[in-house]
Structures are given as C-alpha cells and as structure tokens.
Design a protein around this nucleic acid. Structure first.
Length: 153
DNA sequence: GCCAACGTTGGC
DNA sequence: GCCAACGTTGGC
C-alpha cells in the first residue's frame, strides 16, 4: 500500500466536508498538472491512504487522513464547458485529466502544522511538501515518512 | 498584498 | 528546441 499527501484549500474543499459524510466517495477533481495526473491515473490504488493538507489558509498543515476509494478515471469536469476546470483541449475519446475518489478516514485532533513539519524536516528526509517552491497538489509519501509524520500528531 | 518559484504558452 | 512572457501557487 502506498501513501500520499493531497493538498487542498479548505475554503474550497477540505477535511470538514469529508467528515460531514464519512461514507461518501468524493471525487478529487480539477487537477490540471501532468505530474499529478500521472499519479492519479497510474499510481494511486484503492485503499491507499493520504494525508489531507490544507494550503492557502491561516494555519497550513495536515488536518486529516483519507482513503482512496476508487482508482483513477477520467475527470468529467474537463468536458463540462460551464465548469471552471473545463479544458477544451481534452478529448473525451482520449481523456487528458483523471481523478480518484476519496473517503474520510479521520480528522486529526490537532493538526500537524507546516511549522511542525518544518521543525522536523531533517528526520522527515526531504518530504516533498517541504521542498522550496513545491507546487504539486499530490505527492508520494514513503512508509517511513508516513510513520514519522503521524508520530508528530 | 508581496514575491519567489514553477509550469505552460507561443513566437522564432 | 529555445526562451521570454505570462499565469498560478502558496507561504508569509
């Protein structure tokens, strides 16, 4: 089983929405970056776990955990011309963009803030979220990193 | 609001 | 294929 970190803006979608319907599968749509697309399409597997990281908010950090409930499939918002994430260049016969479904696992009682993560950067061994200028919305987390991050909770 | 970092676009 | 310009991200 692999582990991931998925970045989201809580003002748009976050751990609270997941927690409100804990059995529901939520489509993780709107990813428009090829590296992240490749992970959504090829690498994320059912039952993989992901840290839910909140960015662009008062206290950036990891607020909870979600599970991959459905593996990669074409992102329908790419074909919806009224949608903000509409991509006229994406051909439905050969979709460019993919999404997975996630379900709620848990909300951390106290979030693991970016500040805390940074303070332990050395032992977290180049956790991608800590890399300068990192903009990927989905990044892999090693089993060791996963364990060490959780130990900070 | 600022600004560094990055991905994408498009002219050549 | 190069690279400048541009738009976006995200922490501060």
């Amino acid at each position: 089983m692999k582990h991931w970190l998925m970045k989201t803006e809580p003002s748009t979608f976050g751990i609270d929405e997941l927690a409100r319907a804990p059995r529901r599968k939520f489509p993780w749509d709107g990813v428009r970056n090829y590296q992240a697309r490749n992970m959504l399409r090829d690498e994320m597997k059912r039952d993989d776990l992901a840290f839910i990281y909140h960015s662009s908010c008062e206290v950036p950090g990891i607020y909870g955990i979600a599970r991959i409930a459905r593996e990669g499939y074409p992102d329908p918002t790419a074909f919806d011309r009224k949608h903000v994430h509409y991509d006229p260049k994406s051909d439905p016969a050969e979709p460019t963009w993919f999404q997975v479904d996630v379900t709620f696992v848990e909300r951390l009682r106290t979030p693991i803030t970016l500040e805390t993560l940074k303070a332990h950067a050395r032992e977290l061994d180049d956790l991608l979220i800590l890399r300068r200028g990192n903009r990927l919305s989905i990044t892999p987390v090693s089993a060791t990193q996963w364990r060490k991050v959780l130990a900070l909770a």
